[in-house]
Nucleic acid binder design. Structure first.
Lengths: 221, 221
DNA sequence: CCAGGGTTTTAGGCAAGCCTTAAACCTCGC
DNA sequence: GCGAGGTTTAAGGCTTGCCTAAAACCCTGG
């Protein structure tokens, strides 16, 4: 009945650090603040609190990384998030592009017990509806062998594998165009003057900005 | 990604008022405070805030009732709570006496969309695993035709219908003794000197205190 | 090597929810 | 009708998480 004040914010910070740190290795506080929609001052404050709790390491002027404990905590949240996405998009039949937001709410209200039961109920899915791998109960997962379209070379072909990191705006945009994991992709060319990437996806050619292309991963064949 | 200020506390207050007001019609602030584990001063403060928002009416020195808006809000939470209980105890296979706590977390993180989809997925159940009716999306439900054991007369027989209000301690206690909705009940006698109620449930005789008996409902045959 | 821009600290604030202590107040039963 | 006990107000405080503004600081590119 009583409810702990721990959760929500702390978990969102850790989750966000884990997302930002994937590429850079170090998540700048400014990026963290921007992603979470708070001021840099607030983010700095919070990072200090998390540091004191041993959840993150902060290298001044460089950025933030997760400690072992922080990573564990972050992956537990990510696991819940993706399991809920599977449930919402699967048995519950919600739209692919809507489940992310709902899962964002549920992820912080999920005990280990429920996560495990949900995992078993869903048949231990390997990936969420957006193609991202689901950590197991120990926090481990298999890193997919894919690359963002932004790293593909013109002419390459393959299959879309995942959208990462997920965001409502992006998912809506992609859903409206029928772009999702499993689609066949052919990177035709990059438009001149650093223009958008022209990518043929399931027979339809799309002009994708560099930002977006960095969020769409695929496996080259 | 952005997430709204917690409606958590507000919803817990409204839910609790709805539970306490069932019998009395008016929920005393002291009972509210006790149930929520906060001080009477804090509860009074909060009731004022809820009053300003038009969610409750406060009759000084008497108690609190829900306004139409407050009731609507409370029933939506109750609906989510009981739907989650059905899901957790059914498809997920969690223990009858454990699902209440988990549902308490999830209920505040559930959109109408998810509640509706969950309702459909579960086959529009009429009651939760503890026997309590599940409001429909408009907040209405069929009030069961039962009475707490504390209102039964010695000698009466019937079938247990529900546990209400639910609480972890009570559910654990009852689960350990195999007492749950659906059990056949025979109110043998009330022990002398205002003693416990002797009730034969599924062939086993239990001595139930008056407090507990007020929380166990049954339909007399 | 130096300035511009990102990063951090300092300082002062706000709102929600909770706390305690103490005084004022009402209600009800004897 | 009076007092005990429940209810409310008042006063002062705490924590979390957020804000702005302004100053101090560091890193890097030109």
């Amino acid at each position: 009945m009583k409810h702990e004040p721990f959760n929500e914010s702390v978990e969102m910070y850790l989750k966000t650090v884990s997302e930002l740190a994937v590429h850079e290795g170090l998540a700048p506080i400014s990026a963290l603040a921007h992603q979470l929609g708070v001021s840099a001052v607030s983010a700095t404050e919070m990072v200090h609190r998390l540091g004191e709790q041993g959840l993150v390491d902060h290298v001044p002027y460089r950025g933030v990384t997760l400690t072992e404990a922080g990573a564990q905590r972050a992956y537990r949240v990510v696991r819940c998030h993706r399991l809920w996405e599977c449930f919402l998009a699967g048995p519950l039949g919600l739209a692919w592009e809507h489940v992310h937001d709902q899962a964002c709410q549920l992820e912080h209200a999920t005990s280990e017990e429920v996560a495990d039961a949900l995992d078993a109920f869903l048949g231990r899915p390997a990936v969420c509806p957006h193609g991202n791998p689901i950590p197991d109960r120990s926090g481990a997962w298999r890193e997919p062998d894919d690359a963002p379209l932004s790293e593909w070379l013109p002419g390459e072909r393959g299959t879309l594998s995942r959208i990462y990191p997920e965001s409502t705006l992006l998912l809506d945009y992609l859903a409206a165009r029928g772009i999702k994991p499993g689609c066949a992709a052919h990177f035709v060319e990059i438009a001149p003057f650093n223009g958008p990437l022209m990518v043929c996806i399931d027979g339809e050619t799309h002009a994708l900005g560099h930002e977006i292309a960095a969020h769409i991963y695929g496996i080259r064949t």
